[in-house]
Design a binder for these strands. Structure first.
Lengths: 230, 230
DNA sequence: TTAAAAATTTAGCCGTGACTAAATTTAGTT
DNA sequence: AACTAAATTTAGTCACGGCTAAATTTTTAA
């Protein structure tokens, strides 16, 4: 049995690894809200257990075994999130915190039943991919809404699940999964991004826009061009 | 926040108090599968926290506050059990173990939503009463099947949830909640109890019969007597 | 190149909730 | 009443996963 603490460290390392190859002590400590000393201790413990490789002062990387375990926890987390929204209509800004606790206590059998009930889903309520039981994850090829140029359209595919207030705001703005969005223009520097959603113009804080991941609509002949052709 | 360990002790003391007024160290230790020394330590801790009253060598009793907390945990447990059977069709012999873990990690808000989803139920899948949010429990006036005399009929209202194998057996025998059962005869001493369920005669181990709680059918004129009257 | 700053590790401590072994109290004989 | 057995408590230990403060290493800047 792996303790909740170990599971949380593995999960955090896995997530941080998506950006940097090696995860530093301070990044890990910050992400979990613990002291650097605590992070060092656990990194050593994970290395001893062959769940991570570690070089002193150089950070950690998950071994294949560690990654597998991280993915199991993440699978639990995301299945639970989706289950709570589907079975109890819990809003997407609340499921994360609940799943954070439940993920550590459900049995493999319960996981299987939840997955079956949900029809073996591939995405959680925030658009994050749900790893399969054998540890495969669909890598999403998305871009941040912030990276789109004025005039580009896109479909919302994933949003960060960490800030409930942001999620509530997104709901209010209509920026939920599969929503179509068009970038209008970018205010000077660090200013808000102006977008159109459901025929309404909205201003998005840069911080918020960064947390929205979209699939850009492939450029294609405009309606006007089509009309002319016909 | 109360730790899972404390919650489990409170729950155990509450349950044991249904039989004896004061709960002994060894009863508590046995019920939780810990050493007597561990039980003593926790009993002291509960007394310090004013959740229980304790007299050395004399056992513990919950204070009103301790009882309230125990009932909250029990409410969580039973709501989760029922939710798992209703939402995921998990068999009654499996829900106990899952609920044992989940009960410690669900928020008040999630509890409320589960209760609402289930229509504020009063019984869990094993027939145990679900305490209300303000800590009221319906006391069940039931008798063990073992206490019925030959010829008596009754309705199954509650079964012990602790032994999955027993629960599977009860399912196979048709001894589920609300089943009608008639006692035929008792074998000499400690022998099996012979009963009729759904027109089939069954032999029940004494240990098993003791775990089945029933509401006896009030004695009333027999069908023959009625016929004669008419 | 070297000094200062930042990051990391080490050392040592703490609370929790287990444990065993030994001491003590209570209960049950005879 | 006194002795034995059973129950309980005390004493001391352990693993876990936090913490702070101090020491060390790495990085950055002068």
């Amino acid at each position: 049995m792996t303790s909740p603490a170990v599971q949380n460290y593995l999960k955090a390392i896995y997530t941080l690894q998506e950006n940097q190859a090696s995860v530093t002590t301070s990044a890990l400590a910050a992400s979990l809200g613990v002291s650097a000393a605590s992070a060092t201790n656990m990194m050593k413990k994970l290395a001893r257990a062959k769940l991570a490789r570690r070089a002193p002062y150089r950070g950690v990387q998950l071994t294949p075994r560690g990654e597998k375990m991280a993915l199991e926890v993440i699978r639990h987390h995301r299945l639970v999130e989706l289950f709570l929204t589907r079975a109890l209509a819990i809003p997407w800004e609340s499921v994360h915190a609940e799943a954070e606790k439940i993920e550590h206590v459900i049995s493999e059998d319960l996981e299987d039943r939840i997955a079956a009930f949900l029809g073996n889903p591939t995405r959680d309520p925030h658009g994050d991919p749900i790893p399969t039981k054998d540890g495969r994850v669909e890598r999403l090829a998305l871009v941040s809404l912030l990276e789109l140029s004025p005039g580009q359209s896109a479909t919302v595919r994933r949003v960060s699940d960490h800030n409930p207030a942001h999620l509530r705001l997104l709901t209010r703005l209509g920026l939920t999964l599969d929503a179509r969005v068009t970038v209008l223009r970018r205010e000077p520097t660090g200013g808000p991004l102006r977008v159109r959603v459901a025929n309404t113009e909205r201003a998005l804080d840069e911080k918020l826009a960064r947390e929205i991941w979209v699939a850009p609509t492939p450029p294609r002949p405009t309606r006007r061009a089509n009309k002319n052709k016909v």
